[in-house]
Simulated assay, not measured.
Amino acid sequence: MMVVRRAKSDGGGTITFFLALGAGRQTCRLATTYQTQKQAFSYFQKHRTEFERIARTRLTSGELEDGIVVLSML
């Protein structure tokens, strides 16, 4: 899995990660509410398995936005 961090102007950000699907990859984007990317990335790393499970479920059910699985932190 590869992870890319991006900051947003409102203090939140997005973490983009890729699910391995055999030889292919699926782009997933996680919107964060943390004030720093370090906090968001730390939370993501602790709960990565759960985010991957949710992303796979959404992919299977066809819940995509422009071909990307979109998730958000509560």
Results as ranks from 00 to 15, higher is better:
residue 1 M to W: 02
residue 2 M to E: 14
residue 2 M to T: 11
residue 2 M to N: 05
residue 3 V to M: 03
residue 3 V to T: 07
residue 3 V to A: 00
residue 3 V to S: 06
residue 4 V to P: 14
residue 4 V to S: 13
residue 4 V to M: 14
residue 5 R to G: 15
residue 5 R to H: 15
residue 6 R to V: 00
residue 7 A to N: 14
residue 7 A to E: 13
residue 8 K to L: 15
residue 8 K to I: 09
residue 8 K to S: 07
residue 9 S to L: 10
residue 9 S to M: 03
residue 10 D to L: 09
residue 11 G to S: 15
residue 13 G to E: 09
residue 13 G to W: 11
residue 13 G to I: 09
residue 14 T to C: 00
residue 14 T to W: 02
residue 14 T to S: 01
residue 15 I to A: 04
residue 15 I to L: 00
residue 16 T to C: 13
residue 16 T to W: 08
residue 17 F to R: 09
residue 17 F to D: 10
residue 18 F to Q: 15
residue 19 L to W: 08
residue 19 L to S: 08
residue 20 A to H: 14
residue 20 A to Q: 14
residue 20 A to S: 12
residue 20 A to I: 14
residue 21 L to P: 01
residue 22 G to Q: 06
residue 22 G to S: 00
residue 23 A to E: 02
residue 23 A to W: 01
residue 23 A to R: 10
residue 25 R to E: 08
residue 25 R to T: 01
residue 27 T to C: 13
residue 28 C to D: 06
residue 29 R to N: 05
residue 29 R to H: 01
residue 29 R to W: 04
residue 30 L to T: 04
residue 31 A to Y: 12
residue 32 T to L: 02
residue 32 T to F: 07
residue 33 T to K: 14
residue 33 T to Y: 08
residue 33 T to N: 06
residue 34 Y to W: 04
residue 35 Q to I: 14
residue 35 Q to C: 15
residue 36 T to W: 08
residue 38 K to N: 14
residue 39 Q to L: 09
residue 39 Q to S: 09
residue 40 A to G: 04
residue 40 A to M: 01
residue 41 F to M: 09
residue 41 F to Y: 12
residue 41 F to T: 14
residue 42 S to M: 10
residue 43 Y to P: 06
residue 43 Y to E: 00
residue 44 F to C: 05
residue 44 F to T: 05
residue 44 F to K: 01
residue 45 Q to D: 05
residue 45 Q to A: 13
residue 45 Q to R: 11
residue 45 Q to I: 04
residue 45 Q to S: 10
residue 47 H to M: 00
residue 48 R to D: 05
residue 49 T to G: 06
residue 49 T to M: 11
residue 49 T to K: 03
residue 50 E to G: 06
residue 50 E to L: 12
residue 50 E to H: 03
residue 50 E to T: 03
residue 51 F to H: 03
residue 51 F to L: 05
residue 51 F to I: 00
residue 52 E to S: 08
residue 52 E to G: 10
residue 52 E to H: 11
residue 52 E to C: 10
residue 53 R to D: 13
residue 53 R to A: 15
residue 54 I to G: 00
residue 54 I to Q: 06
residue 55 A to E: 07
residue 56 R to T: 04
residue 57 T to S: 12
residue 57 T to K: 14
residue 57 T to N: 14
residue 58 R to D: 05
residue 58 R to W: 12
residue 58 R to K: 08
residue 59 L to V: 09
residue 59 L to S: 07
residue 60 T to C: 13
residue 61 S to Y: 09
residue 62 G to D: 01
residue 62 G to V: 07
residue 62 G to Q: 04
residue 63 E to C: 01
residue 63 E to D: 05
residue 64 L to C: 03
residue 65 E to A: 08
residue 66 D to C: 13
residue 67 G to I: 08
residue 67 G to Q: 12
residue 69 V to F: 12
residue 69 V to R: 01
residue 70 V to M: 01
residue 70 V to T: 11
residue 70 V to R: 02
residue 71 L to R: 01
residue 71 L to A: 02
residue 71 L to G: 01
residue 71 L to K: 00
residue 72 S to L: 09
residue 73 M to A: 02
residue 73 M to I: 05
residue 74 L to Y: 13
residue 74 L to E: 05
residue 74 L to K: 03
